[in-house]
Amino acid sequence: MDSRFVGIADLVETPSVAVVVDVMRACTVAAWAFAQGAERIVLAESLDEALALKARHPDWAALKDGPLAPGFDMVNSPGLLRSIDLAGRTVVQKTTAGTVGALAVKGASLVLCAGFVVAEATARLLRTHECDSVTFVVTGEDGQADEDLACAQYIARRATGAGTDASEFLGRAAASRAATELATGVRQGVHPDDVALCLELDRFPFAMVATSEGPQMVLRPCAATSPTDAASI
């Protein structure tokens, strides 16, 4: 499998297969939302779009980066999200990196969103599809975020079926700037457990597939052995 690792701004053409990686924290939060029962996640282009969707669908739950703001129900924190019951609900997510990265490759034939918490399921799905070439979108820090690059490189190795020690990759993520900022309170809307939760390898047994549904890009959990069917969580 030929793997490319690029930042969002470096996407000069739409790849055939894309894995969008945002470890801290959009993709980890998305996985937790599904674990808490969410049916689907709508990826919003902007905060205004997220609020407009929420206004049209009051039963939906909207989340964003940073502190909680009027019109939003949650913030982009796995530690805070894990106590919320989202059974059967649609979540609208808008973040500064993860959702932007997914929307940037919406024309790809297969779009996966990933973090360490769904790494093996993501790699297994890539193996199932027998992908010749995969573009990993490193969303943080203009493509330089080491937690995202480490996760992408780990998934790429696992997708080839190679036995790979995860400790090196998790160590890089733990020492990243994002981890430091989350741990020291530089970022807002943070729970003390966020970094640890983002580094829980293979916490969940599903991959996450984003597809266009009408005008929206929608993320759903997917069993790695059945690319078209949503997993039972």
Rank of each mutant, 00 (worst) to 15 (best):
A224N: 04
T122A: 03
L53W: 08
T211W: 05
L110K: 02
H129R: 15
L53R: 09
M208W: 05
P221Q: 00
V218H: 07
E168S: 09
E147L: 10
G115I: 00
P205W: 04
E13P: 13
A97W: 02
R127A: 04
M24T: 02
R157N: 00
S77P: 07
F204T: 12
G107M: 00
D193T: 11
E200F: 01
R127T: 03
R177F: 10
R203K: 11
P215N: 01
V20L: 07
D146E: 13
A166Q: 14
T95W: 05
I8W: 01
T184Q: 12
S232V: 06
R157K: 06
I8V: 12
E120Q: 14
V6L: 15
S232Y: 07
S226H: 09
T14R: 09
T95N: 08
I155H: 08
M24R: 02
G88H: 15
R187H: 13
G107S: 02
G171E: 13
T14F: 04
F169S: 13
T14N: 10
V19A: 02
C151N: 03
R158Y: 01
A178L: 09
Q36K: 14
G7R: 07
L126P: 04
V17R: 08
C113N: 01
V100I: 12
F204W: 13
V111D: 04
S16N: 13
R40H: 00
V138F: 10
G79M: 03
A150F: 10
D229K: 13
L68V: 09
L86V: 10
P15H: 11
E45S: 14
D22C: 05
D73S: 09
H57A: 11
G189N: 03
V6A: 10
L170P: 03
D85Y: 14
S77A: 06
T180Y: 12
L81A: 08
A87W: 15
V209S: 14
T225E: 08
E120C: 03
G66V: 12
A159I: 02
G163M: 08
T128W: 05
L219T: 04
T90S: 12
D65R: 13
A38C: 03
T139K: 06
L199W: 09
G7Q: 11
A166F: 12
S212A: 13
G140Y: 08
A162M: 10
G143T: 11
A179G: 10
A108G: 09
C131M: 11
H129P: 00
S226R: 10
V118R: 08
L81V: 04
S133C: 15
R40Q: 09
S16M: 08
A104G: 04
D65S: 15
F206G: 02
